[in-house]
């Protein structure tokens, strides 16, 4: 019973915060609303006894939203907490697509005869996840590791304004331009 009450409170908070992301009139508030939605979903995962994944979701998303708020300030060149904004296009078609999507998904959720539960959760779910990742699901772990490493490199290549290959050429033997503020060796 208590679980049901907590779930519904968290569900309402998650959806309301999600709606608020696109309703509030400043980007900073939108960022915080998204963080609240993520925290609510992370807490729902805790109701499913997914302690590790729930805590990871909460921690990671709160940090992401903090970074996102910084990006807002960087790119918008204004105080995003104070500056009202409404930058949307195709509002009505977007709303129609969203409503149709919800109706289709909700119909599936309600009308499909879902099978009953098979098996029982392990006594310690975090341990079982760790054992799966280091055992039978090792390939997933290895793939995720490579993808994350590639993401680091790709993001750096895109975000760094002027890398050493730009400054020194493909063979890295070009002359160092001391006049450049980000010149090699500085």
């Amino acid at each position: 019973m208590l679980d049901d009450v907590v779930f519904w409170v968290l569900a309402v908070v998650a959806v309301a915060a999600g709606v608020a992301v696109f309703r509030v009139d400043s980007m900073a508030r939108a960022t915080y609303a998204l963080a609240v939605s993520f925290v609510a979903v992370g807490l729902v995962l805790l109701l499913f006894d997914l302690q590790f994944l729930g805590v990871i979701t909460v921690l990671m998303m709160v940090m992401e939203m903090a970074i996102m708020a910084i990006y807002m300030i960087m790119f918008m060149g204004m105080n995003p907490a104070l500056m009202p904004m409404s930058m949307v296009h195709a509002k009505r078609p977007s709303l129609a697509v969203a409503v149709v999507t919800f109706v289709v998904l909700a119909s599936g959720a309600v009308l499909i005869p879902w099978p009953s539960r098979r098996g029982a959760p392990a006594s310690d779910l975090t341990v079982s996840l760790g054992q799966a990742l280091m055992g039978s699901k090792m390939l997933v772990m290895m793939t995720v590791s490579a993808v994350l490493f590639a993401t680091i490199i790709g993001a750096l290549v895109l975000a760094v304004p002027r890398g050493r290959y730009d400054r020194l050429g493909d063979d890295l033997r070009g002359r160092v331009d001391a006049d450049q503020p980000d010149g090699a060796g500085q």
């Binding site: 998650a14 980007m27 990006y71 790119f75 949307v88 296009h89 977007s94 969203a98 309600v110």
Partner: peptide, 24 residues
């Protein structure tokens, strides 16, 4: 649970289609 997830997904879809700012 799936109903709540459907609502979240739909709201996100609305935002992804309608917003103009890349970060939004």
């Amino acid at each position: 649970v799936l109903l709540v997830a459907a609502a979240l997904f739909s709201v996100g879809l609305y935002g992804a289609i309608s917003q103009q700012v890349v970060v939004m």
